[in-house]
């Protein structure tokens, strides 16, 4: 059996760059730009996409629609990839979507223990805590203790399902619709849907 070559490479090339992170990034950008491999204007466009175009409002739109429209909810739970793509939410790190619905019986929570996989087209760039060692290590073993870090306490008879994103399938949690929201339209409902409620570390806001 071949052996992974990387283990013999004790002299990683990255050590040739300046150690300080901001200088390291600057050096890489300068080298790649000079070689014609990276266009700084493209970097600006990528940053603008994730700062101002793609974020948790996309996911909130999907959740509010699922709360308001039973036909949409059924279709979303059956084939989330196609349904959210119709709303324009498709792309990198959201190629294969599954929506999982919280109920009084079951609470869903999403993690990626091996790296930090996350549904970018619906939620944007993951928050720092999602990428932290503490979340990656603990969410699968003690999800209720992690929920307590977020101030969330579940009823004693609610089961927790933790989804570890080990493949290219990305999971969106549909939080429970809060009570007292019966007359609210989709736009008003969207404001109740937090980023954390769609990862499963939070609940939707109450109006």
């Amino acid at each position: 059996m071949p052996h992974d070559h990387s283990d013999h490479d004790h002299d990683h090339p990255h050590a040739l760059l300046p150690p300080e992170p901001a200088l390291r990034v600057k050096a890489l950008e300068t080298i790649l730009t000079a070689k014609g491999l990276v266009d700084p204007a493209a970097l600006d466009a990528i940053i603008d996409t994730y700062e101002s175009k793609i974020g948790p409002r996309n996911g909130a739109h999907v959740v509010a629609r699922a709360w308001s429209d039973p036909g949409f909810r059924t279709a979303l739970l059956q084939d989330a990839t196609a349904v959210v793509a119709e709303l324009g939410y498709y792309g990198r790190q959201g190629e294969h979507m599954v929506a999982v619905e919280n109920t009084p019986d079951t609470h869903n929570m999403v993690v990626c223990t091996l790296c930090s996989c996350y549904p970018w087209p619906l939620l944007g760039i993951p928050p720092g805590w999602y990428k932290s060692d503490a979340y990656r290590a603990r969410a699968v073993r003690e999800p209720r203790a992690v929920l307590a870090d977020f101030g969330v306490v579940l009823p004693a008879d609610t089961a927790v399902r933790v989804w570890d994103s080990t493949a290219e399938v990305r999971y969106l949690v549909i939080p429970q619709r809060p009570s007292g929201t019966d007359g609210m339209d989709e736009a008003a409902l969207m404001d109740l849907v937090t980023r954390d409620s769609m990862i499963g570390t939070g609940l939707a806001r109450t109006p």
Binding site: T113, G128, A134, A137, V140, R141, G151, T201
Partner: peptide, 14 residues
């Protein structure tokens, strides 16, 4: 491969 590991302390919401 850190799933289940002990010793990482609290998760800090943002």
């Amino acid at each position: 491969d850190m799933g289940g590991r002990y010793g990482d302390g609290p998760v800090v919401p943002e």
